[in-house]
Amino acid sequence: MNVDSITNGVVIDHITAGKSMRLYKLLHLGDLDCPVAMIKNVNSRRMGKKDIIKIDAVIDIDLDVIGYVDPLATVNIIRGGVLVEKKSIEMPELLVDVIKCKNPRCITSNEQELKHVFKLTDRENKVYRCVYCETKAGI
């Protein structure tokens, strides 16, 4: 299967196979007007299989979201058909309004306009917990 290369845009590469849809949703890529291609299960020498997302416009990507969902992914900025920048991805210490706390007993469930904040509590096991109720986030 072929997807055209992009001239100006963003390529999120080396996404763990199966995680591209989660990224697509959390990055709100469905709200974009430009062409967006999500390619799943691409053969990869390093990873076996991987997902790729191509966005046909240079937009600001929330790297914290990528760091949370898949810190091993890479983000490449393409201008004039040339790779001009590789963004480094790290697991963020704090996630603000990226995911919602699902604990119905949490204050975030009924406090007006309270931001949903998750803190990285275990880097090794990629565990984020709600700062209010300490409920573990599900990736």
Binding site: R105, C106, I107, L114, Y132
Partner: peptide, 10 residues
């Protein structure tokens, strides 16, 4: 004291 978890932090 509040029934919601995290209320004191808020």
């Amino acid at each position: 004291r509040h029934p919601k978890e995290g209320a004191a932090l808020v």
